[in-house]
Design a binder for these strands. Structure first.
Lengths: 156, 156
DNA sequence: CATTTTTCGTTGCAAGTGCAACGATTGTCA
DNA sequence: TGACAATCGTTGCACTTGCAACGAAAAATG
């Protein structure tokens, strides 16, 4: 007798579908208005929090592979949104920072994106929000103890 | 003054990180043991529920673009896990079904994958599971009313 | 019936992705 | 100090992906 299995009730599948739908919805905004990809968007946002970051900084904190970050930064530089300078002190590092144009683009996008997120969160009660995030944390904690799982990306 | 924004607390980002980590963990299983990609895995699983499906059936129910399904089916056929026959009645349709080898591969993978999912769900209380899935549904419902969002894939 | 539209699956093509490997720079340790 | 190892960012390469366009087949329209 065959193992009964319903993909539509499978946790990883449901998460993937929801996550993808939400990502797409957001991408509509920064893609249409500023031609950004997901990787470029993440890099750009992360640069807003701190200046003079290296590729590796972004790589470890933003959950993108190193080559992906490198190329995203290259495209952002080509678009004039980002500036690359040799890192002082350590000659291997590259110091990346936002240009005025990059700041301005972020200024356009962030309010829109925050507004969309707010609409999603407003549909939930306080308790639901709390439990939802707690569950995500618990799932990460379970994965942390699984040697076959990837390490959790730093979220700080 | 600049808009404060913390990517690590941004709902879409957190969802993407968790979803990707979970997907990767699963992919380890069916990729290493049977050389399947995510698309191939989804197609294979969906074929288990019903026989003689068309590309379009899979496309609409499994949240994969049509060309992606077509190519995944082609690779599965090449690996001997799937059989393609011209659809009777409608000459445009392609009738896809599992071979014995495909059934056998699923028989290997499904218990392992279900076990991993069970470990994740067991870390949650009944209430947490309930709220978590309810929140996912609510987020979908909010997206349903957003004309800029993609339609929700059928989950049946 | 004849003609136009729609649907189905596939393919072309440009672009992005993951992984390994590379040169360059820095750190480590005998 | 000198040899070796580790780290940083980039690049090569094979592969996948998304989107548009295509031919074949069926449906809709007159």
């Amino acid at each position: 007798m065959s193992h009964s299995f319903d993909l539509s009730k499978f946790l990883p599948y449901r998460l993937a579908v929801l996550s993808e739908r939400i990502s797409r919805r957001l991408a509509v905004e920064y893609e249409r208005t500023h031609g950004l990809s997901v990787a470029e968007w993440r890099v750009l946002v992360h640069l807003q929090s701190g200046e003079n970051l290296s590729i590796r900084d972004i790589h470890t904190r933003v959950n993108l592979e190193k080559p992906r970050v490198s190329r995203a930064v290259g495209r952002l530089q080509g678009a004039g949104l980002v500036r690359k300078m040799p890192g002082q002190g350590d000659g291997r590092l590259v110091s990346i920072s936002l240009t005025d144009k990059g700041q301005s683009a972020l200024g356009d996008i962030l309010p829109v994106v925050s507004q969309i997120e707010a609409e999603w969160l407003d549909a939930l009660s306080n308790g639901e929000r709390e439990v939802f995030f707690k569950v995500m944390e618990k799932l990460h904690a379970t994965l942390d103890q699984d040697p076959s799982a990837r390490p959790r990306p730093r979220l700080d």
